[in-house]
Design a protein around this nucleic acid. Structure first.
Length: 255
DNA sequence: ATGGTGGCGCGGCCA
């Protein structure tokens, strides 16, 4: 069973890439972020045609998340319970025995900004939510665009990025606190190529020069992590015409 | 090199 995440930066533009990718890779579950479209515009028919069920929580211009799944998704919930936020950044669903929580963590813009404060506050709310979800589900995956590079080896130039948004200590501590609730980074279970990243700025030929960050993650509860057999970044779609600035990440599980 | 690119939507915000 394969579970994947991909920040598509507009599903309207990236739909052909997504359809090709699911046909080629056949994930059981694919979580999308930054769909950037209202629910009325969501390309549900095209996705169903490719053999996937889909649930989505959209908004105009910004944010928007969706979960594609081979099997029916049940107990679907959009947002963080009790946190009434118009920004569509979270969606949970149960597929088979696995609870999936798809997140698009706020970017934070700049350390010290209002958006940065919002990001840190948001991560505390997410942590409380995940704690509750872990109490109810043995097999849980928290995956998506976290907008945080966990350590310096997830950064192409740690000196340049030191203390900057996506790499600052408060953000890393917030991510660690989330992990400490009972999660594991599936990517780091395995030997990986050095300089493995998931996002590259569109500017300054960052992808060609591999000047990226690893900010998209698949975090697993202990019992799911034990069954994790592989985890990879697929740089293929980032090489296509009009790519997303993020590459998909996919983990494979026993059973 | 204090910029650069891309999406949305048509000026400026956001990443």
């Amino acid at each position: 069973m394969k579970i994947a995440t991909w920040n598509v930066n507009s599903l309207r533009v990236r739909l052909p890439h997504v359809l090709d990718w699911v046909v080629d890779n056949q994930p059981e579950i694919l979580c999308l972020q930054e769909t950037k479209m209202v629910n009325e515009d969501f390309p549900e028919a095209e996705i169903r045609q490719a053999g996937y069920n889909v649930v989505y929580s959209g908004q105009k211009t910004y944010n928007g998340v969706a979960i594609l799944s081979r099997m029916h998704a049940r107990d679907v919930f959009a947002g963080i319970p009790g946190n009434d936020d118009p920004q569509r950044r979270v969606m949970a669903a149960t597929v088979g025995k696995v609870r999936v929580v798809n997140v698009y963590v706020p970017n934070g813009q700049e350390v010290g900004s209002e958006k940065y404060r919002y990001k840190l506050d948001w991560l505390v709310k997410l942590e409380e939510y995940i704690q509750t979800e872990l109490g109810e589900h043995q097999e849980l995956a928290l995956l998506g665009d976290f907008n945080i590079a966990p350590t310096d080896r997830d950064v192409h130039d740690p000196v340049l990025w030191r203390g900057k948004v996506l790499c600052s200590e408060p953000e890393r501590k917030a991510l660690q606190a989330l992990v400490d609730v009972g999660l594991n980074d599936s990517f780091r279970k395995f030997e990986q190529e050095p300089e493995s990243f998931t996002w590259w700025d569109y500017r300054a030929a960052a992808f060609r020069r591999n000047r990226g960050l690893r900010i998209d993650h698949i975090l697993c509860s202990d019992s799911l992590y034990t069954r994790c057999l592989a985890c990879h970044v697929d740089k293929g779609p980032r090489k296509l015409e009009r790519p997303s600035d993020h590459a998909p990440v996919m983990a494979e599980f026993e059973g």
